[in-house]
Design a binder for these strands. Sequence first.
DNA 1: TAAAAAATACCTTTTACGGGGTATTTTAAT
DNA 2: ATTAAAATACCCCGTAAAAGGTATTTTTTA
Lengths: 214, 214
Amino acid sequence: MGKIKIILADDHQILLDGLSSILELQEDICVAGIYTNGLAMYADIKNTMPCIALVDINMPGLNGHELTLKIKKEFPEIKVIALSMFDDITHIMQLIKAGASGYLFKNTNNDELLKAIRAVADGGTWFSAGVTDKVAAFIKAEKSRQYDPVAPALTGRELEILKLVAMEYSNAKIADSLFISERTVETHRKNMLRKTNHKNMVGLLKYAFDNHLL
Amino acid sequence: MGKIKIILADDHQILLDGLSSILELQEDICVAGIYTNGLAMYADIKNTMPCIALVDINMPGLNGHELTLKIKKEFPEIKVIALSMFDDITHIMQLIKAGASGYLFKNTNNDELLKAIRAVADGGTWFSAGVTDKVAAFIKAEKSRQYDPVAPALTGRELEILKLVAMEYSNAKIADSLFISERTVETHRKNMLRKTNHKNMVGLLKYAFDNHLL
DNA sequence: TAAAAAATACCTTTTACGGGGTATTTTAAT
DNA sequence: ATTAAAATACCCCGTAAAAGGTATTTTTTA
């Protein structure tokens, strides 16, 4: 069986050097290209046609997400492992949706790194422990946040206020519009946030639109 | 030509008495029903089958908007004139969309009231001066706010931040997620608001969704 | 290579919002 | 008629956000 051909992209040369030195020691892995930015990797990828592209997600120019999208679109058979400082769910979901087969943190130890590369080369996936936890929690939260038939509906007055919030009215202006006290508006807002378990009007409005309340 | 048959709904008896006494003096108008709430008017409307329903929009139980929707759905030929303390564009648009042929303020003088009733009975519409001004301004603002191809797009970083805002992240949390300073987040938010002429994140997010930026 | 744009970061002040409650009146439901 | 829910209004406090700027560095564009 041939060696696992891998290419690397990261804007930090030191990290590239470190990665490269680790990987070159492996009998079954060969590093076919090293790039300090996404554009360079993308420009050269049809020449290297690697099995795996290991990409830092935070690069200037073409970032890891954009690079992954492009790679998977043109070369779906090339697998991508994202490398990140972030443990933020937004980036994780973004890269997974873009088709990454793996997501590792930059502080991943060498052993896990190698395991991940081999698993992905073998057709599998590898996400750091924290990543899978976050994804599970995120999906769970999303499901409980999307259309929730059990959640108490908002009252007519609450929705009326929410519509004005959506129109960027301040509490004072809402109060003027509805001929009620600003305190009353504050209480309605507070009640809506509490009812729907949201932190702010942004989230609440999204909830209202998602549930066709507005 | 027959008299204009009209029915009235308002939760303030005094106002009903006043309206009724004015209208009964007119040779061409007859008051066929007087109700202190929307439900009562709705329940009786097929018995009265008036030409015009004059309805206060702020009533308990069935408010003027809901009442108008029901009336126009079941009896599209019955015309509705909304009567309101509000000069708020939300209610105005709401009632117009519900099919009201007129929108008057409660401080409208008798002369205008009669003119409105006659115009509407004649198949026309009648909106108080302030109403038409507000509607025009509102539509103009909406048009300039909806998909605006000339408006500068938001940058990649700005959109990244906006996505996190949409997820109810605080500035601090956004900063942590993106490994940048909270001040930087503040500046990006400020810049986006300024670019798109919005007052707050709520409006900006709506703009972003409307323009398919998110 | 130079210019422009984007990204970053900081400062101050003001305003608005969120979070913690309680209480009374009005309206709706039973 | 009674109870429950909704609507109203108030209080206090702390923090977040918005608004007003400026400045430097990095990246992108021409």
